[in-house]
């Protein structure tokens, strides 16, 4: 279990980004539910924590694909693959995340490949 942040520091409608590799974000919905998903959009490197939460969906701030916070499913292109979902627990006012064992669906990292070629 990885500690994220105190529940009191995460108001409804906001997200907390865990700086792990790959990053994971915890969302506190307007309805008061907590969800954790991979923070990176599966289409292009963008932080979903910077996106917009509506109900139990988060909209990517770059190209408007929406991810379901409960299931990780994506609603429409340009993103095509789901994000992973992670288990969230609250103990003594602290939010914890238990990471999924599945393989993440990360966007193609052109920059890394290019760096390899140019190095």
């Amino acid at each position: 279990m990885i500690p994220a942040c105190p529940l009191a520091d995460l108001p409804r409608g906001e997200a907390f980004r865990l700086e792990i590799d790959p990053p994971v974000s915890v969302f506190h919905t307007e309805d008061g539910e907590l969800f954790a998903i991979d923070d990176t959009c599966t289409h292009q490197d963008a932080s979903l924590a910077d996106g917009w939460v509506e109900g139990c969906w988060v909209e990517c701030p770059l190209h408007a694909s929406k991810f379901n916070l409960k299931t990780g499913a994506v609603d429409a292109p340009p993103a095509k693959r789901p994000v992973r979902t992670h288990e969230v627990l609250v103990e003594d006012g602290m939010i914890y995340v238990r990471l999924s064992a599945a393989t993440p669906n990360l966007p193609p990292c052109v920059a890394t490949k290019l760096a390899g070629v140019l190095a």
Partner: peptide, 25 residues
Amino acid sequence: AFQCPYHAWTYGLDGKLVAAPNLTK
């Protein structure tokens, strides 16, 4: 938000840079 149609730099109505490809890096 206002989004640049070129590289998708995205700005909030308050002018702040909200998102951009690879911004977290």
